[in-house]
């Protein structure tokens, strides 16, 4: 059951240029939260300020259920994220969560987690959960350049050594993270499930690779949202089932994680 609660900000650090990791204490929206789900961060000044108005959906990046703490990892792209980036330890932030569908933790392993840019955000929480259930997993992290590689330390803290890819070759594999995935598959890596989050061109490529290699695959998608709880019909995305158009999913309740085979990229 989602809750609305005031979270206390523990830390808000710029972990890469224009990217922040915000740690929050809030048992009510941490309890029961699963990797792949998201929360709605309400704008600073809530409920008195009305501009910006709408909540900012953010994936759970790290979950500590025992301590009632979680983190989000976000990129500053506009006014709302700029405001969030300026919050300081001790500030309050109102949060609604947990929302949406998680990654299916029962998916067969070995897993490969593929993150592009800030799309790495939900994959750390997934790696935490995978570790906890003893899944065998590998992590591929991509970014434009070395300074923008995100959450690498977080994965290392789980004793995972992520494989890196940069568009400019400044760290790890030179090329897109999906090229790295293709390379790993060509080299005989035996994955059974792919979990991916990142920009649309990346997800489209993951979908194609998963089809070619007969892997089950789950993508975490984004949409412009309003309510985040399924009430307003804003966040729809066309899907197909058995090759046929199957109407719209509300990404906030039927996603954001969707089986790759159902996703239609236009």
């Amino acid at each position: 059951m989602p809750a609305i609660a005031r979270a206390r900000l523990l830390a808000n650090r710029e972990v890469a240029p224009g990217h922040y990791r915000m740690d929050l204490a809030c048992p009510a929206v941490t309890e029961g939260a699963l990797a792949g789900q998201f929360c709605n961060l309400l704008m600073p000044g809530w409920p008195l300020t009305v501009d910006p108005l709408l909540p900012r959906p953010m994936s759970y990046h790290s979950l500590d259920h025992a301590a009632g703490r979680f983190a989000v990892l976000f990129q500053v792209v506009g006014r709302g994220t700029a405001l969030l980036s300026r919050l300081e330890p001790g500030d309050g932030v109102h949060v609604v969560g947990p929302l949406g569908r998680p990654f299916p933790l029962a998916a067969p392993d070995p897993w490969v987690l593929v993150g592009g840019g800030v799309g790495v955000a939900p994959l750390l929480a997934l790696a935490q959960a995978g570790r906890a259930r003893g899944a065998s997993l590998e992590v591929l992290v991509g970014a434009q350049s070395a300074p923008r590689l995100l959450a690498v330390d977080g994965f290392r803290a789980l004793d995972l050594e992520p494989r890196l890819a940069t568009d400019d070759g400044s760290a790890g594999f030179a090329g897109f993270v999906t090229d790295l995935l293709a390379r790993r598959l060509a080299d005989g890596a035996r994955y059974r499930t792919v979990f991916a989050c990142g920009p649309v061109p990346m997800l489209r490529r993951v979908q194609a690779l998963a089809t070619d290699h007969r892997l089950s695959a789950y993508l975490s998608l984004e949409a412009l949202m309003a309510c985040g709880v399924g009430a307003c019909m804003a966040c729809v995305r066309p899907v197909r089932r058995d090759g046929e158009a199957a109407g719209y999913l509300r990404l906030c309740v039927d996603g954001p994680v969707v089986a790759a085979g159902e996703v239609v990229f236009d």
Binding site: P52, L54, L224, A226, C232, M233, A234
Partner: peptide, 18 residues
């Protein structure tokens, strides 16, 4: 309903085209 995107935030408000 309409194809997405269906909402956009505007100053102190939003537009919808559900």
């Amino acid at each position: 309903g309409n194809p997405p995107p269906r909402v956009v935030e505007t100053p102190a408000g939003m537009l919808n085209s559900i």
